[in-house]
């Protein structure tokens, strides 16, 4: 689309609007149609420029030199290691944040205690702080010279420059999703069903597993999908705490950066495509799940 020639917005002139009968009505209809088309073109153009074209280019560049080059790039041992490390970190951080998120949502929506508002703010904090800053704060506390790091090192535990620190960084930046997606669903659910379960003899634990969780599950699933996408793609915070040691603490996004900086275009783009496919897979899974939820809801 050419940016120099924006679609003309056919605003009906005041005279024609005030003017006579059918002609004015038709012109007003045309104006509304043109308005809608313009909006649609703007939205699609925006997406095309920002998202579709760049991602498309990555795919194009990746396969530019043929499939063999791509295969070599993704089967390189450092690439393989980065791929599995990213999955490993997500596999630990996502369940942790899911459990925490559901617990926090229950506390914030069902609990009545002092400091509830403060907890709400704290949960949102990772959205507000730059991931790089998150990484730095973790180093300050858990690094060798850090507040807890010395004690941890004495006990043979290294957090920074190793997997535990990277899991922590990932967990922090993806912390709010599950709680924030679950809270509105919990609020809408209300407490009637839970109280009914209590009068029927259910313990708090039984009520949670049999009544509350099934009722909020789609909110939780949506939160988990967002958390996973964020965890797999995280760069800034992990970059700081990992030390970016090739073949050891390099996640897939870090590997992409590394290849790019070393002028290995195919390597960078191929890894980027793998990342994009992971994200796409996550989104597709979510779409399928929500569609099934909608079908069940319609029953």
């Amino acid at each position: 689309m050419s940016a120099s020639q924006p679609a003309t917005l056919e605003t009906p002139s005041p005279v024609s609007v005030l003017g006579r009968g059918a002609a004015a009505g038709r012109r007003r209809g045309e104006g509304a149609l043109a308005g809608r088309l313009t909006l649609r073109a703007l939205a699609l153009g925006y997406l095309a420029l920002l998202l579709v074209a760049p991602v498309g280019m990555v795919f194009y560049r990746t396969f530019e030199h043929g499939l063999d080059a791509v295969w070599n790039a993704v089967s390189a041992s450092n690439a393989q290691h980065a791929f599995w490390l990213s999955l490993e970190i997500a596999a630990i951080a996502v369940p942790l944040n899911t459990a925490f998120g559901i617990g926090a949502a229950l506390l914030l929506e069902r609990g009545r205690f002092r400091g509830r508002a403060a907890l709400g703010v704290l949960i949102d904090l990772p959205f507000a702080i730059s991931p790089v800053v998150v990484g730095l704060t973790l180093v300050l506390v858990y690094g060798k010279a850090g507040w807890l790091g010395g004690w941890l090192a004495d006990n043979g535990l290294s957090v920074i420059f190793s997997v535990p620190g990277m899991v922590m960084a990932t967990a922090v930046v993806s912390l709010p999703f599950v709680a924030r997606e679950t809270m509105p669903v919990l609020r809408e659910l209300g407490t009637d069903a839970e109280q009914a379960a209590a009068t029927l003899g259910a313990t708090a634990w039984q009520t949670f597993w049999r009544v509350t969780l099934p009722a909020i599950r789609w909110g939780v699933v949506y939160g988990v999908v967002l958390t996973s996408a964020r965890a797999l793609g995280e760069f800034g915070a992990v970059s700081i705490v990992s030390g970016r040691i090739e073949g050891q603490t390099q996640t897939l996004p870090l590997y992409v950066q590394d290849r790019f900086e070393n002028f290995d275009g195919t390597g960078a783009y191929a890894a980027a495509v793998v990342l994009a496919l992971l994200a796409l897979g996550t989104l597709l899974a979510m779409n399928l799940l929500t569609r099934r939820a909608r079908e069940r809801g319609a029953r």
Binding site: A193, Q195, A198, T199
Partner: peptide, 18 residues
């Protein structure tokens, strides 16, 4: 509530929708 042996019917029935 769970150990009182009461049956309670809520105004909006509070069904377990799932």
């Amino acid at each position: 509530a769970r150990s009182r042996g009461v049956g309670f019917v809520f105004q909006h029935y509070a069904p377990f929708k799932h």
